[in-house]
Nucleic acid binder design. Structure first.
Lengths: 205, 205
DNA sequence: GGAAAAACGTGCAACGGCTGCAACTTCGCA
DNA sequence: TGCGAAGTTGCAGCCGTTGCACGTTTTTCC
């Protein structure tokens, strides 16, 4: 990796961490792009060559991890059952959305408290679901499309609701893990009742 | 209803229909508040005393219907099972989100095609779900909170996914009704497996 | 019917997010 | 060492959104 790329990455992180720190200190809408730029020692104009919008700084890390999940989803072993694939993705999702470090905690709090950020988080979750549905339709082309969409909506919906609940109740990492495990147990019982999801692959045609 | 209120309502409708017409003709971001105000024959400033933001015009009708649902949810007969209540709400939701008239079709297309409006639609759906969870917790206080949240996430998630699919595939009203009925059948099978949802009420304590 | 009070519409000025453009600077590569 | 690509910056400007102050309409109360 050349000097140029390293520098870009450093600047990106500088902007992101400055932004999160300021959001935490004075609030999201009380912080301007100029403030962030000044704190990260770049020009306001430069902010937008790193992040497409102010909101996106909050989701930057999450988006990277979601992109990872999507990439790894494509490399799924072909003998894996859809249900097993879902388990992997669900675990990765919980991981991607959870946040261990301090910045992560700030992100979670921001998303919890701002309706417009909540909406964007929901959109990202829905996009992840959609990606999974696409893969599922590749695996099980015989499965009715409405059923596939609904069943995945059920699975992701249950998981999302549990995570949202944990956030709202300010659960710590342990209780969140416990709650999501519980939610996944409920959800997987549903998935197991769909035959197409528990057989490795359809080798039709 | 006095003259004042009638006039306000008329202005509100004028702004909304002018906005939707312009969105349809030239696109959402290509239409400015000034354009809308001019078409509705009010000052640009006045737009914001009727709608809090440009986006909200798109959701104005939907929000009214969602408020209705929420209000009627409070008047639930106390001997109704949670499952039956869900059925009523689900039907009303499908109705609220569907659109019969021409403006409705424009709204649906806008929401389908603009990611930021999609996000806001998801938020509204999630809020409806949350409202239902609150009611459920009043009905069945013995039900574990995480389970309650998850089960409702499952139910609303499945329904939402089916509706989204129908939108994406540009299903007409009939096929949409059919698909949502199918989705509701799947979802209700899940709900029936939760004992607390099929008994009229807990008369504990 | 008329005056005071409340509600409403409007223009103005301003802020902040965001973008296109045209320099200017820095870096990678030969 | 120099050339081209990539990155940075300031500027000007659009648009959504808001607070404020002023004038007008409607309601209310006598």
């Amino acid at each position: 990796m050349g000097l140029r790329e390293r520098k870009k990455l450093r600047t990106r992180r500088a902007i992101a961490s400055a932004a999160l720190r300021l959001f935490d200190e004075r609030g999201f809408e009380e912080t301007t792009i100029s403030d962030i730029a000044a704190a990260a020692d770049v020009s306001p104009r430069t902010f937008f060559s790193y992040f497409p919008s102010k909101d996106d700084v909050v989701f930057a890390e999450m988006d990277e991890r979601l992109a990872d999940i999507r990439a790894r989803l494509a490399e799924r072993p072909s003998d894996e059952t859809p249900l097993a694939t879902f388990r992997r993705v669900a675990d990765a999702l919980v991981e991607a959305i959870s946040a261990e470090d301090e910045d992560g905690a700030i992100q979670v709090a921001l998303i919890r408290d701002r309706p417009s950020l909540q909406a964007q988080a929901l959109k990202r979750f829905a996009d992840a679901e959609e990606g999974f549905v696409e893969v599922l339709r590749g695996i099980a082309p015989d499965l009715d499309a409405v059923t596939a969409a609904t069943v995945m909506g059920v699975a992701f919906g249950g998981l999302r609701a549990a995570i949202t609940y944990c956030r709202a109740e300010r659960y710590d990492a342990d209780r969140t893990r416990e709650a999501t495990a519980h939610a996944l147990a409920i959800v997987e019982k549903v998935l197991e009742s769909v035959p197409a999801l528990t057989c490795p692959a359809t080798d039709a045609h």
